[in-house]
């Protein structure tokens, strides 16, 4: 029975070891902010942080994250980078349908955490795994820049 630390809380779970973290979060813990988009690490909708690093939860078996710190979009606002990113997202009005945005925000917050002032090409490199069908990319770029400049 794996025990996971999700957003600072311990969860003892009765799930198979090979079950991807995405489905544990969504269907068992019922944190639905993390989204299913492709299931095979092609779209980034399922991005969460494990020990501060972005991973695709749709292909991460639950056994691989036991004992690690898992952060989802629901709690990313409690980190300084996450809070800056959310603020910039609101200010620039990045969001359209919003379905991809949990993943975008998690990727962007991780980028800012590791690189406080990313260049355009660093933004592209960090964000190219996150698809947005609504086409919010120009605003994502602008919002990351704004967040990187905000105090």
């Amino acid at each position: 029975m794996p025990t996971l630390t999700i957003n600072g809380q311990e969860h003892e779970l009765d799930v198979p070891d090979d079950m991807p973290l995405l489905w544990v979060l969504r269907d068992v813990v019922r944190l639905t902010g993390t989204k299913f988009g492709c299931g095979v690490a092609l779209c980034g909708a399922c991005t969460v942080h494990v020990d501060g690093r972005p991973i695709r939860s749709c292909i991460a078996p639950v056994s691989s994250v036991v004992g690690k710190k898992i952060t989802t979009v629901e709690a990313i606002g409690d980190t300084p980078s996450g809070e800056k990113i959310q603020r910039a997202w609101l200010d620039i009005e990045v969001v359209q349908c919003g379905y991809c945005q949990s993943g975008q925000i998690m990727s962007a917050a991780a980028l800012l955490e590791s690189n406080p002032s990313p260049t355009d090409s660093e933004i592209d490199a960090a964000m190219s795994g996150n698809i947005c069908r609504c086409g919010t990319y120009p605003r994502i770029r602008a919002a990351i820049k704004q967040a990187s400049q905000s105090g």
């Binding site: 902010g33 299913f36 997202w89 609101l90 969001v95």
Partner: peptide, 16 residues
């Protein structure tokens, strides 16, 4: 936009 705040912190609910 009125729907943005809930779409940046995972609270917005889609059909899924």
């Amino acid at each position: 936009r009125l729907d943005t705040p809930e779409k940046v912190d995972g609270k917005a609910k889609f059909g899924i």
